[in-house]
Amino acid sequence: MTPPTTTAGTTAGPAPGAAPTESTLHDDPRFRELKRRFRRFAFPVTTVFLGWYLLYVLLCAYARDFMAHKISGNINVALVFGLGQFAATFLTAWIYSRYADRRLDPLSAELRATAAERAGVAA
Rank of each mutant, 00 (worst) to 15 (best):
M1P: 11
T2H: 14
T6M: 11
T7C: 05
A8M: 04
G9H: 04
G9R: 06
G13I: 00
G13V: 03
P14F: 10
P14I: 08
A15E: 15
P16F: 01
P16R: 07
P20W: 10
T24Q: 13
L25N: 12
F31A: 10
F31D: 09
L34K: 08
K35S: 14
F38H: 14
F38T: 12
R39W: 14
R39N: 11
R40K: 15
F41N: 13
F41L: 09
F41K: 09
A42E: 15
F43R: 13
V45H: 06
T46V: 03
T47M: 02
F49P: 04
L50N: 09
L50R: 04
W52P: 08
W52M: 15
Y53P: 08
Y56K: 06
Y56I: 07
V57R: 11
L58F: 11
L59A: 10
A61H: 05
R64C: 01
R64G: 02
F66H: 02
M67P: 00
M67R: 00
A68K: 00
H69V: 03
H69I: 02
I75F: 00
I75C: 06
I75R: 02
N76P: 00
N76E: 14
V77W: 03
V77S: 03
V77Y: 00
A78R: 05
L79N: 13
V80A: 14
V80S: 09
F81T: 02
F81V: 07
G84M: 10
G84P: 04
Q85V: 04
Q85Y: 08
F86V: 09
F86C: 14
A87S: 05
A88P: 01
A88Q: 01
F90V: 08
L91M: 06
A93H: 08
A93V: 02
W94P: 01
I95P: 02
R98V: 02
R98T: 10
Y99P: 04
A100H: 01
P106W: 00
A109F: 04
A109C: 02
A113K: 10
A116Y: 05
A116H: 05
E117N: 12
G120Y: 00
A122I: 00
A123K: 03
